[in-house]
Design a protein around this nucleic acid. Structure first.
Lengths: 136, 136
DNA sequence: CCGTATCCTTGACGATACTG
DNA sequence: CAGTATCGTCAAGGATACGG
């Protein structure tokens, strides 16, 4: 689905008048979303929670590379930005469930588009890195 | 173009088997592309070069917030990954032109999709931040 | 079970100065 | 014009230990 694109930008063309006043770029929220989701764990969490709700330790076990500190911090960040919902069940012992909000779910589409690009073109980038002697 | 999406993931669903062996996530190149392009300047440069080729100081003036150091480093990074092509013209004084490679151009589509999402939903995120008392 | 608190390392980034 | 070199700062992230 979705033809590959060597085609026109779209929003980008609109966002960037020619002399590029810089302020335009600062204001442009594209950078913002990349910063929010471009860290080490946010995307992984969003992808996971895109499948079903998870409890805290369930996430901790599932990802396993992540520290408790970063799991908590990343979840809080996503919660603050309204991408993830946190619900506490006052059971004994307590359990906390995390799920995507509708806003968070709406991110899955665009992210998937980028994911498809990455899956398709990552070999090209790897080849380029070899050609240009990054880690030879 | 492209209806909004609260719809299904796609690649993400494929990328993530349920117990999530972590290795799957490490290997998944989605994180990689976000890391490469999620820094402060890469996206801006890609967006700029998506419009036309630029010379070094032209970029430096156009973006203006950027230091020479970071401009050079970011361009080198993008060049190493095959997203940007650097061509030197042995004139006096020397001039160097940067342009997107076809690979780099192919990124504009997916990035634009995410840009559209950001433009549309950034207000929702800002509202959420206020609700959740991030910078109140 | 679900976190917080503390310490430490690393790398991103900016500022400034200098060069072919 | 098109960079490199050096230094300093700051936030992301990991490790470990502790608490409700």
């Amino acid at each position: 689905m979705s033809g590959t694109n060597t085609d026109v930008p779209a929003v980008l063309a609109y966002e960037l008048p020619n002399p590029v006043p810089t302020a335009e770029l600062e204001i442009c929220p594209v950078g913002g979303i990349f910063r929010r989701v471009g860290d080490r764990w946010s995307l992984i969490l969003i992808a996971l929670l895109g499948r079903r709700p998870y409890r805290y330790n369930e996430l901790h076990r599932a990802i396993e590379g992540i520290s408790q500190r970063m799991l908590t911090r990343t979840l809080r960040g996503l919660e603050i930005d309204g991408l993830v919902h946190r619900e506490v069940f006052p059971t004994v012992p307590p359990s906390v469930e995390y799920r995507l909000t509708p806003l968070g779910s709406s991110l899955l589409g665009p992210v998937s588009a980028l994911a498809e690009w990455a899956v398709r073109h990552e070999p090209d980038m790897a080849a380029a890195r070899l050609r240009n002697g990054s880690v030879e």
